[in-house]
Design a protein around this nucleic acid. Structure first.
Lengths: 352, 352
DNA sequence: TTGATTTATTGGAACGTTCCATTTATAGGC
DNA sequence: GCCTATAAATGGAACGTTCCAATAAATCAA
């Protein structure tokens, strides 16, 4: 059953009555081989149950065809969507990308990166884990492996980045809330060791300033970037003397958490407290109430990242231009009706 | 900047003034090396910016430390949870698993499998794509690579399987619906080319028979295994003369779809139509209404699969026992109150 | 001191491929 | 028939590692 030893091109050569070099040529689809010979060889390949040894080949070929995608949180559907976008373009390029999850853990990320390098990847698309140290990608750079960051960037790094326009997205969302009549706002979730955080928070702050919301009415609460973080933020905000009436959340997961916590308090997301998310994952549309969110064209960014990577590999460079993707606010139900048209700020917590 | 050529153990050897063999030994953490020598070598490794070439090593070592996880649908959070469970145990074993997505496409799966084999994986955990042909894993078997199936199995295959008790789960869920007073039931989603489908459907059917539901009152609708499939099933079921009043869904994604479609018709999932899911993904608990679902301990199954794989690799076998995981029904709100205690079957479609 | 034993280190062959420089076969021109 | 040009196939070296057998150095027993 289990074939004695692994078959090599020598076994194929013997079977087909040709030399190993001929087999190698056939394997590479070289046009130098007479068609009949190629057929004969291919039959032999089938017969001996050959499996190509890419490791051995890479020993000579210098560049492999393996591309790694390093994702910081696979359980967040947003990153799954991103990964799927990338896969689409790699697939049509005949490449099978390997996905590795870091679970937002820099130590794990280090291991993953090391392993991928040892495997001899041709390139890496990375969404870095929170708290990644600036030196984490030094080895990659030294080795000349092309890397592009997706969605997240590192403070001082020359690695190209594919990211949505976080500042503008946050500005749009905040302006929407203010336009609805909200005067005490909050920014929920995310942590300051993330560059994205500062970008999104920056948009939030700029909108507040521009549109006349005082600093003390713009609450900022850091927190985990998942549902749990959203719940926590909402709870602490309601424990304050003058709770906000609306929140821009770091991402959709945080927004879902906030809405959950509202429900648990008997409040209705939308009418009682406006929440807007960021990323516009597919769930956003189907949630009850449907979540207003900043759409970033996730899969599109993934595709873009993949294309940039392909180009870098092809042109043997480690540099590329950053790409800032357009965003737009998708208004759904989670911000409720216009606040000013209502008699008074109904709801439990909304005294003041 | 970009170091001239890739550094090899020879470069390290020269730098440290030892032989390549000594370097190799240090790399493998052999105790044969004098500690001071090891220190010297390790310094040299750092200095030359060495990166280990696992491909070259595998050429001699026969067995690599790469394990592949082949997932049929990464955008389904269920499989993401499964993957995370597996990762947990591999991580503690010092292994970085590579994840590849087949997007439920057998052709893609073929490519992925081929690529992973060429990479020389030590083992594979696979959740096979829909419509996988029986021969798809022949090459793997021939090559003696350990494979375990997770969540799904193939019709005639001797490859070990880790799966929840689908039959029992479906039975439990169906019995629950019948216990609530429902008399016209449906099974939504899934397709008959999936073994899981038959298992779950079998549980549904057995419960119906045992508990006195006639065949004609047990509607079965195949469909996609995602939200869209759930929407479609609900729509076609409501187009019938005597629509069901409750449905067991193939999985949670289908259930979410069904609930969505109900809402769109102005019906309230639970009171107006009972729906129960399968898998109990984390979203189930947080949905509105919270979804009653069959919990399968997803991450636990993932861990189990990983353990089995590790054991197989260690003992150099390609066989292992199947594992059928316990399930339990988590009752939440999506089935509403007991049907018999209500005046009459309210709702739009529920005449008769 | 000598030989035996243990501890560290080393050179060489092997792993399965690719690529280059050759060789051999086939065809074309005259 | 011979020479040249082209097409097809080949042997050998190289890629970066591991492992084995062998050597060199240190320790010990007598």
């Amino acid at each position: 059953m289990a074939s004695r030893a692994k078959a090599t091109i020598f076994d194929i050569a013997r079977e087909a009555g040709v030399s190993k070099s001929t087999v190698s040529l056939v394997l590479q689809g070289s046009g130098l081989i007479r068609p009949e010979t190629a057929v004969k060889v291919r039959k032999a390949i089938e017969d001996v149950g050959y499996v190509y040894n890419r490791g051995a080949a890479n020993l000579r070929k210098a560049h492999s065809n393996v591309i790694g995608m390093v994702i910081n949180d696979l359980t967040n559907p947003f990153f799954a969507e991103l990964a799927v976008g990338m896969e689409r373009v790699f697939q049509s390029a005949g490449i099978v990308p390997f996905i590795a999850n870091t679970a937002e853990n820099p130590v794990r990320q280090e291991e993953v990166l090391k392993s991928l390098m040892e495997q001899g990847v041709a390139g890496l698309i990375v969404s870095p884990a929170r708290g990644t140290t600036p030196g984490a990608f030094r080895r990659l750079e030294m080795a000349g492996v092309p890397v592009v960051f997706a969605m997240r960037r590192l403070p001082e790094s020359r690695i190209p980045v594919i990211t949505p326009d976080n500042h503008r997205g946050a500005y749009l969302a905040t302006a929407h809330l203010i336009g609805k009549g909200h005067r005490r706002l909050a920014f929920f979730g995310g942590s300051s060791d993330l560059v994205v955080y500062h970008e999104r928070l920056g948009g939030f702050r700029e909108a507040c300033e521009t549109l006349g919301i005082a600093d003390r009415d713009a609450l900022v609460l850091e927190g985990e970037t998942n549902r749990k973080g959203g719940i926590a933020c909402l709870e602490t905000s309601f424990a304050m003397a003058e709770p906000p009436t609306a929140a821009l959340c770091f991402n959709d997961a945080v927004a879902f958490g906030a809405m959950l916590a509202l429900r648990k308090r008997g409040l209705e997301p939308g009418p009682d407290f406006a929440v807007v998310g960021f990323d516009d994952v597919v769930e956003a549309e189907h949630y009850v109430p449907a979540l207003t969110s900043v759409a970033v064209n996730t899969a599109g960014l993934g595709e873009r990242a993949a294309h940039v990577m392909l180009k870098m590999i092809q042109s043997r460079t480690t540099r590329a231009e950053d790409h800032i993707g357009a965003v737009n606010l998708v208004v759904r139900e989670s911000c409720g009706p216009d606040r000013r048209t209502r008699a008074r700020p109904a709801g439990t917590g909304g005294a003041a």
